[in-house]
Nucleic acid binder design. Structure first.
Lengths: 125, 125
DNA sequence: GTTATTGTTAACCAAATCGTTAAATATTCA
DNA sequence: TGAATATTTAACGATTTGGTTAACAATAAC
């Protein structure tokens, strides 16, 4: 049976982990295959400890698994949290992908107009 | 022509804005229609200034437009940044939605195995 | 066994985040 | 006009974040 120890990490940590450009770059890099810490650090102009901290943030968000191999630490992406974030956003997908031409904004406008009409009727002036 | 002044806000601000449960709750609430600041604050047990700050974060991320109407401020969701975040995640969607049964992880495992073989051959012991 | 290499941890610092309470602003109501 | 309502701004504090340099640990290589 497949390992089903899944990312029980919450959206707070996931979105926060994705909110830094270096960490997103690391995710992008790992999407193309595993890499060592040094390889992940190489494109960026910050110190190695800084990268180490970013990796820890990704790990705490469940996005990363690190496995020591000799003196090298190999990093593997875990996409489950990405799927979790994607799932949250998907709930609102219809709001920008409606094929009825900006349906959502029309709804908003309609309600606003309705309220303005109410106000017009409410105040005598 | 439709207004195309679009959310030029970067992913940093968008993901950071979504990284707090109160702000996500506000987004969810606004997805159902506009609301005033007071209405948005009501479900939460933090002070009004705290809510005001959250709204500012959402506004800075382009997720929110606020329009004063008398003494209430009406808040409207702008979904463009959600779409932006969704778009970023979509690039990796194949990694968890592949229909070949965990293709991505097999790729990772395969590469790792290959490396282990290389090492086996490299070291004489 | 020393020396390099790879990476983490510790200690520190500046800035940002998230909350508070108190005061200020603006609008409506009586 | 004055009081109530809705919301923001100011000032403060605790915690977190994101970076640094220096020191440490573990493995590999000579």
């Amino acid at each position: 049976m497949v390992n089903r120890t899944k990312a029980l990490v919450d959206l707070d940590a996931i979105f926060a982990a994705l909110a830094h450009p270096i960490r997103r770059a690391i995710v992008e890099r790992l999407a193309g295959g595993d890499a060592t810490v040094g390889e992940l650090a190489e494109p960026h102009k910050v110190s190695l400890p800084a990268i180490s901290k970013h990796l820890r943030v990704l790990e705490d968000a469940g996005l990363l698994q690190v496995e020591p191999e000799g003196r090298v630490h190999r990093c593997q992406l875990d996409v489950a949290p990405l799927s979790t974030a994607f799932g949250w956003l998907t709930r609102y997908r219809v709001l920008w992908e409606d094929r009825f031409g900006r349906l959502a904004e029309h709804l908003g406008e309609t309600r606003k107009t309705e309220r303005k009409e109410e106000q017009k009727h409410a105040r005598k002036k």
